[in-house]
């Protein structure tokens, strides 16, 4: 909408970190292209059928072709786009956060939710949030206790747990 764009851009522009160069743009487009091609091959294998009796693969095949064609266009035209953010040192924080999430999911069925949750909250507070040791520990204990109260005692959700 032409009337409104300048307003929004002016406000939004300043928050974003420096934009990434052409490489991530092209890589992203290539990944999308790969998805499209893989989807097309997979759905072709399912059988396309005919228009009177569409097979299970017809619709996904059509979408995959659209993805592939548009991604190819993006590979060519998207080089100069400035809407991607550079991956910086701060990205490591996100990666670290992600690792803790995976650990939680992996440990949950083995040792229940209490200890992994406690550690997750503590790690996020202390290292990702740079809270003090004291508040990290206090907040994580209170949080896990509150979750126990809410999920286990009040909602009676069958969460894997120790106690």
């Amino acid at each position: 909408m032409p009337i409104t764009d300048p307003l929004e851009e002016e406000v939004a522009e300043e928050t974003r970190p420096p934009h990434a160069g052409p490489v991530p743009q092209v890589v992203a487009a290539l990944v999308a292209l790969a998805v499209g091609v893989a989807g097309a091959i997979g759905s072709f294998g399912l059988g396309l059928g005919e228009l009177t009796h569409p097979g299970p693969g017809l619709w996904p095949f059509a979408i995959s072709i659209v993805i592939a064609v548009l991604s190819l266009t993006l590979v060519v035209t998207g080089r100069g786009l400035q809407d991607a953010e550079r991956f910086s040192k701060a990205t490591l924080l996100t990666a670290a956060g992600l690792v803790t999430l995976i650990l939680l999911a992996a440990l949950l069925p083995l040792i229940g939710f209490e200890i992994p949750s406690l550690l997750l909250v503590c790690v996020w507070l202390r290292w990702l949030g740079k809270e003090s040791w004291r508040s990290s520990i206090v907040i994580s204990i209170v949080t896990v206790a509150a979750f126990y109260l809410l999920f286990v005692l009040l909602l009676q959700v069958p969460l894997p747990r120790l106690i």
Binding site: L101, S117, V121, W124, G129, L159
Partner: peptide, 18 residues
């Protein structure tokens, strides 16, 4: 937000499990 983030994450993950 640093304090809210882990709590929200926990709600999200445990919520997904339920």
């Amino acid at each position: 937000p640093a304090i809210l983030a882990p709590i929200t994450v926990l709600i999200t993950l445990l919520g997904a499990y339920t």
